[in-house]
């Protein structure tokens, strides 16, 4: 009874996968027409970020839409007259060179607050479910692994911090930086046999980071009449102290995500014996 159900279910799944594959391959074989595929050859890779930055600048783009209509977005070669150069332009609407960051943190900052809250709730769920699990025995790690993990841990931490501090300049940001920090703590948990992760301290750090995020939003609400509005002056595009609120919020998000994910991994590894 169960076996026939399994076979029919897998057959249906396989046919669905084949149909989806045919669908995707059909889309790949179609000739590309103008306006949908980005012209890669014309873009100089060094100016790529500042070229796209113009499209992101909302006030200019809406002005152009009123003047030229939708033709502006279809034809990439007609970039607006106000060119923005890397390292020279000042006092823009929003000063981050990486346009994904400015959308995630500035224009859709409230959604990011919701995402961080979802992660927090899932970690709380792991902590509640895993309580009372008995710790199993591990094989003792050898000398090479112990020395290597002790030596590599500071560099992995440094790389995570680099990713979220430079989030508004280079690809990356708070979430990848936090995940890299958590993988460093995972290396330490697996490589050293008598390492205990300090769960209480990480919970305190995580709560403080979340509080700071909400406080930055409230300062924006009181000064600019909008929650999470940018209240710090945006400097020159491409410098480290440039994007105003974006870099500040990404540091907070990086610390919060790193503490959350490493708490979850540590509780999954050693069980919850304290409470």
């Amino acid at each position: 009874m169960k076996k026939t159900e399994f076979i029919t279910g897998s057959f249906i799944a396989l046919t669905l996968v084949v149909l989806l594959g045919i669908f995707f391959f059909q889309a790949l074989f179609q000739p590309s027409y103008e306006g949908k595929v980005m012209p890669v050859d014309n873009v100089n890779l060094k100016n790529r970020v500042s070229l796209h930055y113009v499209l992101k600048n909302v006030n200019n783009a809406s002005k152009y839409l009123a003047m030229h209509g939708m033709r502006y977005f279809n034809n990439r070669s007609s970039v607006p007259s106000q060119t923005i150069t890397y390292g020279k332009s000042k006092n823009l609407e929003e000063g981050s060179a990486n346009e994904v960051t400015s959308i995630v943190v500035n224009y859709r900052g409230f959604d990011t607050l919701g995402e961080v809250t979802v992660l927090f709730i899932s970690i709380i769920g792991i902590t509640m479910l895993i309580g009372g699990v008995v710790e199993k025995k591990w094989i003792k790690p050898s000398l090479i692994v112990r020395t290597g993990s002790k030596f590599l841990f500071p560099f992995i931490l440094l790389f995570g911090v680099y990713i979220f501090i430079h989030g508004h300049l280079t690809p990356g940001g708070g979430f990848p930086g936090g995940a890299v920090i958590a993988s460093g703590f995972l290396l330490l948990l697996l490589g050293l046999e008598n390492y205990r992760f300090n769960t209480k301290a990480s919970k305190v750090i995580e709560s403080l980071a979340g509080l700071t995020f909400v406080c930055i939003g409230l300062i924006g609400l009181f000064t600019k009449n909008s929650f999470l509005a940018n209240f710090i002056p945006t400097g020159t595009v491409g410098l480290l102290y440039s994007a105003g609120m974006v870099s500040l919020i990404y540091v907070v998000i990086g610390i919060k995500v790193g503490a959350e994910l490493s708490t979850g991994v540590a509780e999954l590894k050693e069980g919850n014996k304290n409470d």
């Binding site: 094989i139 790690p141 050898s142 090479i144 692994v145 290597g148 030596f151 590599l152």
Partner: peptide, 20 residues
């Protein structure tokens, strides 16, 4: 340098774990 540091350690640990 990072690859040169990590790859031998992981290979050593894989061999040790499969031997045990």
């Amino acid at each position: 340098t990072f690859i040169l540091l990590t790859a031998p350690i992981s290979s050593h640990n894989l061999a040790r774990a499969s031997h045990k």
